[in-house]
């Protein structure tokens, strides 16, 4: 799932200053699962904004809408009836959703209420962690399921670097060293000799470095 953090309230309230009628938009997909921008979080943020604006004496009128998905046109189109009645759209969807809604309703500005962070998993209830950077050229077969691009702070392919101590990354003591995990996994599977293979230089052109990416399946096009 795509994981996001809600932006600091001060930043949100600053962006909203010129506006009275706000369409507060949530998404039922990833941001609901990571408890950042689903219907519940939309309700809480709406309440916070209303309380703040009431205190300031400049009340805000907030319409709360949570779409099934913000990244598919069929759902984004269902927003149509609410657009005319709002001055601005404040979105708690991920960066994709924020942009996609903006592309559909060009006469309204869409403001981000969240900072989109990473593609990750739920490690435990209330804890999400990064697993994939979408480099476009998967190496998980070679590293037995642990991604060095994402989970090593230096994205090194022939680790671990000298900063790995006690299984922990020197950059963040809450993050395991990816290469310790990979070596452990090699050992677990009786494949430690694989460690001696020098991993070749990576082709980054399939990653963001090659420019924005697109996937097309001609057979599905209408």
């Amino acid at each position: 799932m795509i994981v996001a953090n809600r932006k600091p309230f001060e930043e949100i309230i600053g962006m909203l200053k010129p506006y009275a009628r706000i369409l507060l938009l949530g998404c039922n997909e990833c941001v609901t699962v990571c408890a950042t921008g689903g219907a519940k979080e939309v309700a809480v943020l709406a309440s916070e904004i209303r309380l703040f604006r009431a205190k300031e004496g400049v009340p805000a009128e907030i319409k709360e809408v949570t779409l099934e998905r913000n990244c598919d046109p069929e759902y984004v189109e269902t927003l149509k009836p609410f657009i005319d009645d709002c001055d601005v759209i404040l979105s708690m969807a991920c960066g994709c959703g924020i942009q996609f809604v903006g592309e559909h309703y060009r006469n309204r500005i869409v403001l981000p209420a969240v900072d989109t962070t990473f593609d990750g998993v739920t490690e435990q209830h209330g804890v999400w962690a990064e697993r994939c950077q979408g480099c476009g050229n998967c190496v998980l077969d070679r590293t037995l399921g642990i991604c060095p691009v994402t989970r090593c702070a230096k994205s090194i392919f022939n680790g671990p670097c000298g900063g790995s101590q006690g299984g922990v990354c020197e950059v963040n003591k809450d993050a395991p060293c990816a290469w310790q995990l990979i070596v452990d996994r090699y050992k677990e599977m009786g494949m430690l000799d694989r460690y001696l293979e020098i991993q070749p230089i990576k082709d980054w052109s399939t990653s963001r470095d090659g420019g924005p990416r697109k996937r097309i399946r001609e057979d599905l096009k209408i």
Partner: peptide
């Protein structure tokens, strides 16, 4: 090379890789 970093058991192997 850091002979003292973890995991210790691959630190010599890592130098072997660098030699290779």
């Amino acid at each position: 090379e850091n002979p003292f970093a973890d995991p210790f058991e691959i630190r010599a192997m890592r130098l072997a890789k660098k030699a290779k």
